[in-house]
């Protein structure tokens, strides 16, 4: 692939100088070494150093560069430039539903607040043994598809329930983390965790529309985890 020009429409807003946000039309030349959207963003920034976005690992494990790409949340570093149709501008916006700090950078306070609210740490009241706590490979397998979350917020910010109640609904990422600890055979706080989640807002705002599953860049399934939490609650109540 020789070099080609990509056209972008990018959401721009610098509260220091702009009265309100606007969409900027900008284009950039990319060559065969630029495979991912992040490569193009870095080139754009070389052209215009005022373009602000987060990035770090550029390999999809740190979760910094989640943005809204052509209407769908995703990581810039995992989005292939070849996936964009020729001729149409690529529309980039900050993640929806969170306050914008500047350009593509959103304020994630609310997202992390919800993550913290589920007590995201192992709770075990027994005195720690000398060696590791034992766990069978099968029990360990229960954590697969849960612990890999990178907290990029693609899921929660694509969830209408989180848009309407970001202060009350834990959101898919937080609920996935909650189930990660419920599912861990070493954790002893299952009941407390279920008590905390049994709430019309914290858990039951999930209406199973599965936007979270659709956008997760790591291929995780928060909806399934939420379903398992509900199933445990039913098992406990019946």
């Amino acid at each position: 692939m020789a070099s080609r020009t990509l056209h972008f429409k990018i959401y721009r807003y610098d509260p220091d100088k702009d009265r309100k946000p606007y969409m900027q039309d900008i284009s950039v030349e990319v060559d065969e070494n630029d495979r991912k959207l992040l490569d193009a963003l870095v080139k754009l920034k070389a052209k215009d150093d005022s373009l602000a976005f987060r990035r770090s690992c550029r390999e999809g494990v740190c979760g910094s560069d989640a943005i809204n790409i052509n209407g769908k949340n995703g990581l810039a570093c995992l989005t292939d430039l070849s996936s964009f149709p020729e001729g149409k501008p690529i529309v980039l916006r900050p993640l929806p539903g969170l306050p914008v700090i500047r350009d593509l950078i959103v304020d994630m306070t609310q997202f992390f607040k919800q993550y913290h609210s589920i007590k995201p740490y192992l709770i075990n009241h027994d005195p720690p043994p000398e060696r590791e706590r034992l766990q069978s490979p099968k029990d360990r397998e229960e954590l697969d598809g849960l612990y890999e979350c990178i907290l990029c917020a693609c899921c929660s910010t694509s969830c209408p329930s989180f848009w309407w109640n970001p202060d009350k609904f834990v959101g898919p990422a937080g609920l996935l983390a909650a189930y990660r600890f419920i599912a861990d055979t070493r954790d002893q706080a299952t009941n407390e965790r279920l008590d905390d989640l049994e709430d019309p807002y914290r858990l039951f705002r999930c209406h199973t529309i599965m936007n979270c599953v659709d956008v997760c860049p790591k291929g995780l399934n928060p909806t399934r985890a939420i379903g398992k939490i509900k199933a445990l609650m039913v098992a406990r109540a019946i």
């Binding site: 202060d167 009350k168 008590d195 905390d196 049994e198 709430d199 019309p200 807002y201 914290r202 858990l203 039951f204 509900k230 609650m233 039913v234 109540a237």
Partner: peptide, 14 residues
């Protein structure tokens, strides 16, 4: 204060 924790919802959901 922003309050949550009504602790119902399972019966309704079910």
């Amino acid at each position: 204060r922003n309050v949550v924790g009504a602790h119902y919802g399972l019966v309704d959901w079910l």
